[in-house]
Design a protein around this nucleic acid. Structure first.
Lengths: 294, 294
DNA sequence: GAGAACCTCTGACTAAAGTCAGAGAATGAC
DNA sequence: GTCATTCTCTGACTTTAGTCAGAGGTTCTC
C-alpha cells in the first residue's frame, strides 16, 4: 500500500468515526458553525480577520454569525486599539461557560472512543497519532519569504536568540544586529516557516562576497524537530541563494548544536577553516551550489 | 499529554489539512453529498439500504439524491432480484467516469499533501496512519449478540472454517454442525463483531454442564489481529457466559493456533486434560469466572 | 391469507451554509 | 490631501442538508 492509499483509507475511517468529535458540538443550542466559532475564539479572544483566515469563512457569513453570538450574549466585540478597522472578539463569561461545555463534550466523546482499548493500545494510538500529527503539520507548513524587519521575522529570530541564550554555556548576546538589513530583498532573503500563524522555523541568506552567500539565523522550533523541517528549510535557502546568483554558500555554527552539525553534513556541507570573527562559532561549512541547482 | 489530548489535537490538524481531501470532491459539478454517494456506490453497485446505513442518511434525503443522480444519467436503479422491496443502484458508464475523476482528484490531493516529505518520512507517516487506522477501527467495532443461525453468524463462522481448513495440515471438516443450536439464545449465545457491516471477529458460548460453559468458534479476521480484538471478544464472551449462570468456562484449540494459545494464557486460562473428543483439538483450557466477574 | 414488519419513495417543510455586490469607516503611500 | 487599499458589515439572494409523516409496494410469520 502506498502512502496515499493509507492516507485515503485513513481519511474514510476518520470521517466516519472520529469526525463525530465535531458533531459533539451539536445539541447545545447552537448550530455547528457557531459552536466552532466559539471554540476558535478561545479564552484569549481573536480578531475578526484571524477568525476568517482560520475558519476559511466568507466575510459576510462570519459577520452574521458573530452578530448572532453577540445577540445571544456569548461574545463582546470592540474595535482593535491598534488598527480601528479591525474588530476584536472576546468571549463573555457566558461565552466562556458555553465553550467549557463544548470542551467537556468533546473530551467525553474522545474518552468514549478510546475506552474499548487497553492502556497499552491507547499508548500505541497516542504515539501513532502524535507522529502523524507532527508529520502532517510539517508537510503543510507554510514557507514564505518576508522582510527581515517584519514582525514575523523578528518573532522567529527572537525565539532563535532565546534558545541560543539557553543552550550556550556562556549565554548569548546578539549585540545590536543592524546587519539584518543584509538579508533584505535585493541583496539577500529571509524565510519564515509558519504553522497556524506561529513561526516554527526560519533562516536567512546574505551575500558574503560576489557569488558567495551565507546562511544565517537558521532555527527550527524544538517541538518541530524530527520532521525534516530543518533539511527542507536548508534546501529552500540554498535555492534562494542560488537564485541570488551565489555559486557557493557558507555558514557557521556553535559546537553545542550537534543536531544542526549532523544535518549540515548530511546535506553535503564540508568543514572549512574559520572565515569570520563570530565569537560563538566553532564550526564553519561550505557547499557548492552549482551542482545542487535543481 | 493524554490520549484524548492527542486525539483532539490531531482532530484539529486533521480537519484543517487532510479534511480537504473530501472537498476535492467539489467543483466537478455535483455537491459534496452527491459526490460522496457516487463514490460510495462504487464499481460494484450497492443497495439503497446499504448506502443509507453506510452514509447515515435519512431515507427521504437519499431517495432524492439518487433520483438526481439518475436524472443526470450517472446511475441506474432496478429492483433487487432477491428481495423486490429493495432497489439496487449501479453506476452507468458516465457515472463510472465521474467516479474516476473524483478518485483522481482525491489521489492528487493526497499526493500533494505528502509531497514535501522525504521518502523516509512518508514511510513513517504511512506506518503511523496504518497503526492509528487499525486501532481506531478496532475501538469502534460493533459487538453484538446474534442468533447462531443468522446470516451474520453464518458468514463469520464460514470465514473461521475456511481459515482452519487452510491452516491445519490435514485440512478441516466441520461435519454437519447442527450443534450450533446449542449457542442459540436461552442456553448459549453467539457474538459477532463487525465493522462497516463486515464480520471481523466472532465467538460463541454453549453449556457443557450445569454452571459450566464452553467457548467455541472464536475467530478474529487476519487483517484485524494485533489490535486486541481477540482479548476483548474473549472478555465479552466470559461475561456472557457468566450471565448465563456459568461459574467455569472451558475451551479447546488446535496447536497450530499459537497466537490464540498465548492469548488464552494471558487471559488467565490454565491448561487442563482433554475433556472432549474433538479430533482437531490439541490443547484444553479452563478459567474460573467467579472472580473474573466484572 | 391476514397482519406485522420492512423498504423505498413523495411531499412539505425548516435550518444551515455559502455567495456576491457594494457601502462605510480606517489606514497607508505618495 | 488624495487615492488606493484594507477591514467589516448589510442585504438579497441560492444551494445544500436535514426532518418528519405517511403512501404504496414486498416479504415474513403464523
Amino acid at each position: 500500500m502506498t502512502t496515499t492509499d493509507v492516507l485515503r483509507r485513513f481519511n474514510r475511517t476518520y470521517t466516519q468515526r472520529i469526525g463525530a468529535l465535531d458533531e459533539s458540538f451539536l445539541g447545545l443550542g447552537l448550530p455547528l458553525g457557531a459552536s466552532r466559532l466559539v471554540f476558535e475564539i478561545g479564552e484569549a479572544g481573536a480578531t475578526v480577520r484571524d477568525l476568517r483566515a482560520r475558519l476559511g469563512l466568507d466575510s459576510g457569513q462570519l459577520a452574521r454569525q458573530l452578530r448572532r453570538l453577540e445577540d445571544d450574549g456569548l461574545v463582546a466585540m470592540e474595535p482593535d486599539a491598534a488598527d480601528r478597522r479591525r474588530r476584536t472578539v472576546r468571549l463573555t463569561a457566558e461565552g466562556r461557560a458555553f465553550r467549557r461545555r463544548l470542551d467537556d463534550r468533546s473530551e467525553q466523546l474522545a474518552e468514549r472512543l478510546v475506552a474499548p482499548l487497553t492502556t497499552r493500545q491507547q499508548e500505541r494510538l497516542t504515539e501513532a497519532l502524535a507522529t502523524a500529527d507532527l508529520l502532517v503539520r510539517a508537510a503543510t507548513v507554510d514557507i514564505r519569504s518576508v522582510h527581515p524587519a517584519s514582525v514575523e521575522a523578528k518573532r522567529a529570530v527572537q525565539s532563535y536568540f532565546d534558545e541560543l541564550d539557553e543552550r550556550f554555556p556562556t549565554g548569548f548576546d546578539p549585540g545590536d544586529h543592524h546587519d539584518d538589513e543584509h538579508m533584505a530583498p535585493g541583496t539577500g532573503a529571509f524565510v519564515v516557516a509558519s504553522s497556524d500563524g506561529e513561526p516554527v522555523a526560519c533562516g536567512g541568506v546574505q551575500a558574503l562576497a560576489p557569488a558567495m552567500g551565507e546562511i544565517k539565523r537558521m532555527w527550527v522550533h524544538p517541538g518541530w524537530r524530527g520532521a525534516g523541517l530543518g533539511s527542507r528549510l536548508l534546501r529552500h535557502l540554498e535555492h534562494v541563494s542560488a537564485d541570488l546568483g551565489h555559486r557557493v554558500v557558507r555558514l557557521d555554527t556553535n559546537g553545542t548544536l550537534v543536531e544542526a552539525i549532523a544535518m549540515y553534513e548530511r546535506a553535503g556541507y564540508r568543514h572549512i577553516e574559520r572565515y569570520n570573527g563570530n565569537p560563538y562559532a566553532q564550526a564553519w561549512f561550505e557547499k557548492d551550489l552549482t551542482d545542487a541547482r535543481r
